[in-house]
Amino acid sequence: MGSEARKRSREKLREQREKEKRAAKRNRTLIVVGAAAAVVLLVVGIGYAVLTSDNSDGYEGPLAAQTLQEDGSVVMAEPDASAPVVEVYADYQCPACRQFEHFGGDVLKEQAAAGTAIVHYRPMSIFAQQPVPISSNSLRAGAAARAAADYGVFVEYNDTLFENQPTEGKDGFTVDELKQWFRDTEPSDEDAQAFDDRVDGEAEIVKEFTEEYLPALTADATEQIGEENIGTMVLSDLISWGASNGHDPAFLEGTYTGEIIDATGKAYTRYSGANEFRATPSVYINGELLDGNTAMSARGLSDAIAEAGDGEVNTEPMDSDGGGDAEENP
């Protein structure tokens, strides 16, 4: 009887001890997990603050003067500024270009306005040979941006295009959107009408180019000079080949679509060696290619500009007679 009671009380004591032990362990686990959570919050919080500290969130100041160049590119700079020349090659359908615009666009505007940089926008279409709608989106947007440059609102329009970039492979940059975005810059009725006509015309050209001309040309060229050789050709070379092989590119002449294809071809031969143009976005300071990590962060870009000497713009301004209306008629 006595041993029964002792056994029971011993059992109880052990249970009690086990319970306390479990509670202590639970507490230790809670403390440890809490500490770990705090570490995560700290690392992520501080890291986030540091990473976003150099995001210039929206330069809202006045823009430096925009000057359309003979080849359809646009220089944004204070008049007579002596500063490093920052060339920006971008395709409106390229997601990385949109990121560049997001992180670096305001730095460029701010520096151009302050006279510490001469910004040379060189829109292009590296996607012109991709399947529709990637190619057609890219070309329509490029041509529309060029048209906006005729009215001195290239930089504003450039921003709008990147903000509204369609997902790759989806239809976007529609004719109606392109027209509306220009109207958002508050042009005169006459200018808006001329812009609309231009965009309509270019859209026709883009359709013909991407859906008829290029597939036929590519098929022929594949047969005659081989897929491998085509892979190494830039589009403008392929078109030249087509010109003497029954694929007349005359319909591109005088169009902004043709101009942007041409500008894209020339970019590939403009630089050599380590500075060779390979992809978009590419950023050059005084002709020197910036590496991707530098170009893609606002701080890297600012530092690179600060370290560079003065440069020369390597294109000539378009004859200025009120914004190029003279060659507006297709």
Binding site: P95, A96, Q99, F100, F103, G292, M296
Partner: peptide, 12 residues
């Protein structure tokens, strides 16, 4: 790094 690239990767 830099975040611009990883943002693009997420958007893809």
């Amino acid at each position: 790094f830099p975040p611009a690239l990883s943002v693009q990767a997420v958007e893809a």
